[in-house]
């Protein structure tokens, strides 16, 4: 699936991946992977498909991604200046930040008083959605192909027809006293 306006710019994709990895971190895809910081041992939002979901025209963020990636780099440059950091020029500035610095910057961008909060929260929401629900894929397909987020949260699979049913669902006994003023219809009085 094309990634909105960032379709032909690998650097923009790296920046968006680094943002998504800050929301739900994952393991590096290869030793050379720079976008993913690699602070955990299992896949995170990037491998769950965050960039594909962000670029999905149905989501609404696609037209804003080019600007978002540019601004992340500008904020990263400013952040580096503030903190007296020297950034590796081989990768975009946001990607050059450490995981801790990416985290601090994302927290600042999503803070209630940030003027562009709405956009950054949207980016974070979709990054998280890619991981915990795989919203760019049909859920049954995502589960059958090993989607790392749905498997990561332990989402139970459907029955053979692709629908969920849980025949065993109850402890089967009364576990508390009812409120003394419950009416005959089961409501509060």
């Amino acid at each position: 699936m094309p990634l909105g306006n960032a379709e032909h710019d690998p650097d923009q994709i790296l920046v968006l991946e680094a943002f998504a990895d800050t929301i739900v971190p994952g393991a590096k895809r290869s030793p050379e992977d720079r976008a993913i910081a690699g602070v955990v041992d299992d896949p995170g939002a990037v491998e769950a498909g965050a960039v594909t979901l962000l670029g999905d025209p149905a989501g609404g963020l696609a037209p804003a991604l080019e600007v978002a990636a540019m601004e992340l780099d500008e904020y990263a440059t400013e952040y580096a200046r503030e903190h007296d950091l020297t950034l590796d020029a081989d990768v975009p500035p946001f990607v050059a930040l450490s995981f801790a610095d990416r985290t601090a910057l994302v927290a600042r961008l999503c803070a209630p008083d940030h003027p562009e909060k709405q956009m950054w929260v949207g980016l974070a929401l979709f990054s998280n959605m890619a991981y915990d629900s795989g919203a760019h894929l049909s859920t049954t397909e995502a589960l059958s192909t090993g989607h790392p987020g749905l498997l990561g949260i332990g989402f139970a699979p459907p029955q053979e027809d692709g629908l969920w049913r849980f025949p065993r669902f109850s402890y089967g006994r009364q576990l508390a006293d009812l409120h003394p003023h419950t009416t005959s219809t089961g409501s509060p009085s």
């Binding site: 669902f169 109850s170 402890y171 089967g172 006994r173 009364q174 576990l175 508390a176 006293d177 009812l178 409120h179 003394p180 419950t182 219809t185 089961g186 409501s187």
Partner: peptide, 29 residues
């Protein structure tokens, strides 16, 4: 109204926790 044997695990857990803390809990209509 919902009988207790039709209350899913999550509702049962909340009821049991309420009971443990000396509170009541109702399966809601």
């Amino acid at each position: 109204t919902t009988p207790w044997d039709q209350v899913p695990y999550a509702g049962g857990l909340w009821a049991a926790a309420c009971n443990h803390a000396g509170r009541t809990a109702n399966p809601a209509p």
